[in-house]
Design a binder for these strands. Structure first.
Length: 240
DNA sequence: GCGACAG
DNA sequence: ATCTTGTCGC
C-alpha cells in the first residue's frame, strides 16, 4: 500500500486533487421527483487483518420497507486514510459492490460527504458522478463547514455553510439524537436529498439504505474472519 | 506554526 | 474505520 512517506506521494495527492476538480465540473444539480421507491445504499469496512476494504451495497424498497437485494465486494487496501480523499481508499470496493446490484434503483445513499467537501467532491459526489446516477451524501459527522445546532425535533434542519455558500444540511432525523450531515452527490438537489434521507428513515437515526449496508458489511467482515482459521488453532469454532 | 480532519 | 465494558435510558 502507498504511504505518505513514499517519494511519489506528493504527486499522487496532486493527481487526486486534479481528479476531484475535474469530476466536480461534471456535477449536475436537478430535483429528484418523485422520490424513487427503490433506493440503494453502500458502505465499507476493513477486513480483520486490515489488508482489504470490504464493501456492501443494498437496494431498499421504501414501499415495503425492506431490503430486496444485497451485493458485496472485497479489494486490497491501496491507500491510507487521508481526510478529503476518502473516495480513493474506499471507492473501488464500493463501486464494485454497487456494480453487482441487479435490481433497479433510482438513487443511492453513501456513507460520507458529497458536495460538502473542500473541492465539492466528497465520496458521494465522486462515486455518483462515475456512476452517473442520482446520489446523496449522508455523513455522521462534519468534514468542513459551519452550522448552528438544529432544534431537537426530528425533521429540523440548519444550513451547513462554507463561507457564504451553503454546501449541505445538518439534519435531525430522530428526536433528541445527533444530526446527520446531508449533501448532494450528483443529479439531485439539496431539498430532494433531505427528503430522500428522511423518507428512508425507519426506527433509527441512520436512513435504512446506509444502515443496512453498514450491517451487511459487518456481517461480511465476521464471515471472512471466521472462514480464515489460523493454522495454529484446532478445527471447529472455538473462537466464539 | 497550530488545529481540524467523512470513514 | 477501529480499539473496547459497563452503563444510562427507553
Amino acid at each position: 500500500m502507498y504511504g505518505k512517506s513514499d517519494p511519489k506521494w506528493p504527486a499522487i495527492v496532486q493527481q487526486w486533487k486534479a481528479t476531484q476538480q475535474a469530476l466536480a465540473a461534471k456535477l449536475r444539480i436537478v430535483p429528484l421527483r418523485p422520490l424513487p421507491r427503490f433506493v440503494a445504499g453502500a458502505d465499507a469496512a476493513f477486513s480483520e487483518n486490515r489488508r482489504s476494504v470490504l464493501a456492501a451495497a443494498v437496494v431498499y424498497d421504501r414501499l415495503e420497507r425492506r431490503i430486496v437485494e444485497i451485493a458485496r465486494a472485497c479489494r486490497p487496501i491501496e491507500f491510507p486514510y487521508v481526510p478529503t480523499f476518502l473516495s480513493f481508499r474506499e471507492g473501488p470496493a464500493v463501486l464494485e459492490a454497487v456494480g453487482k446490484l441487479r435490481h433497479p434503483w433510482g438513487a443511492i445513499c453513501f456513507d460520507g460527504q458529497g458536495y460538502a467537501h473542500p473541492r465539492r467532491c466528497g465520496l458521494a459526489t465522486h462515486l455518483s458522478i462515475l456512476l452517473d446516477r442520482p446520489g446523496v451524501g449522508i455523513a455522521k459527522s462534519r468534514l468542513i463547514g459551519t452550522f448552528v445546532d438544529p432544534p431537537p425535533q426530528a425533521g429540523s434542519r440548519c444550513p451547513l455553510m462554507d463561507g457564504d455558500e451553503q454546501i449541505g444540511l445538518v439534519l435531525r432525523t430522530k428526536d433528541g439524537t445527533r444530526p446527520l450531515f446531508v449533501s448532494i452527490g450528483h443529479r439531485v438537489d439539496l431539498e430532494s436529498a433531505a427528503e430522500l434521507a428522511l423518507a428512508c428513515v425507519g426506527r433509527f437515526r441512520i436512513p435504512e439504505p446506509t444502515r443496512q449496508a453498514d450491517l451487511e458489511v459487518s456481517r461480511l467482515k465476521r464471515a471472512l474472519a471466521g472462514s480464515v482459521t489460523s493454522p495454529m488453532m484446532p478445527p471447529g469454532r472455538l473462537s466464539q
